[in-house]
Nucleic acid binder design. Structure first.
Lengths: 199, 199
DNA sequence: GGGTAATCTAGAACACGTTCCAGCGGGGCG
DNA sequence: CGCCCCGCTGGAACGTGTTCTAGATTACCC
């Protein structure tokens, strides 16, 4: 569940893996400075030391590139969270706390967050596989935080979906300056009530 | 609450109002055909019979244009809904039903829906006022469907926010082909449970 | 009607995502 | 070793959103 880099593609050589990393790192760096619009494909290519055509061979569009960056970052958060899981006896509270921690992680680089989330929501069908992967990681994050000792019920899975929707949409409203962090917390906590209530 | 076209701007002359309408109509028409990317500013201007500069005077960006289109469409739905409100004794069910109706309305012109929603989620801070207006209409739609005879409680308002998040995000996942209509219905119904439950 | 300021038009120009092409280099295979 | 294929490079070129400019038209006030 932790690594699914290229399901059905030939494995990359070491140099290629290094290139891919350089590109992702450059994208994150540029995004951290100026957000979505500061990630310019020519500049990414130059800074990462690859030709523009090569950049497009690795990531077929700017959106693909930034969604891949989001995958990267989310996996880092996931590892962090597994090392230091949220405490508490209420599953809903643990989930809300975990998501708020992730939120604060994103908040530390708001421009990077803006770039990744804009890409994520702007993505069309050609990126749906990659976006789905992000969604899967997010879902895993939530399920981890629930700390179940058995398989989740149908109701729980439905609740997780709504929490995920709330997470994404709240992120968007925060990034566009239409909601405060406090409001995001309230929204997440409200959605998490679905976990502890028998519908 | 129904009309807030230009909060603090000089009123438009008749010719100007007609131009604005022509532009919005053209945008919706082009979007219906080919979605977001088919709405090309030059073509909108040509078809609407205005100069490119004029188009940009009325709508400062493609995103502004499509968000305004969304406002337009949503208000139509709102009028429809007020004429034929959803029946049923459970507020949550009424809300879910109302949103599903709106959903099916959008489904009738999927390309138009795609264009409007892509614009809505891609919007940056410079469009936040307009996006907020869309959010307000959506909220009103939900509150109408709840059919309250008194002011909504804090918990109810919180639930409405989560329902709205779910609505937006579910719309996005449906448009990008990652969720079926049935799944969207389930997600909305799940979120609507928050209304009938005392937190 | 005349004057003036705002608005509109036509079209060039610019920025950036994306595509394409010609040539080069390195790694595997005979 | 020589050859070939594949990926990489550098750079031109294209499409579309956005901006800018000069001149025509309109709206409005006297």
């Amino acid at each position: 569940m932790t690594t699914t880099p290229r399901p059905s593609a030939p494995p990359l050589t070491e140099r290629q893996e290094a290139r891919r990393r350089r590109i992702l790192h450059t994208a994150a760096q540029l995004a951290s400075r100026g957000g979505f619009e500061a990630v310019q494909m020519r500049e990414v290519a130059d800074t990462a030391g690859v030709a523009l055509g090569t950049l497009y061979r690795y990531f077929p569009s700017k959106v693909h590139l930034l969604v891949a960056t989001m995958q990267d970052q989310l996996q880092l958060f996931q590892e962090q969270t597994r090392k230091h899981p949220a405490a508490g006896d209420d599953p809903g509270a643990r989930v809300a706390e975990t998501l708020m921690r992730t939120f604060r992680g994103l908040q530390r680089e708001p421009q990077l967050a803006e770039a990744m989330v804009r890409a994520l929501t702007f993505a069309d069908r050609s990126v749906s596989a990659e976006v789905d992967q992000v969604s899967r990681i997010t879902g895993a994050l939530i399920l981890d935080a629930m700390g179940l000792d058995h398989a989740p019920s149908r109701e729980q899975l439905a609740a997780v979906r709504v929490i995920e929707h709330t997470w994404h949409s709240a992120l968007v409203t925060w990034l566009s300056g239409r909601a405060s962090i406090a409001q995001v917390r309230i929204d997440l906590e409200t959605a998490c009530k679905l976990l502890t209530i028998e519908g």
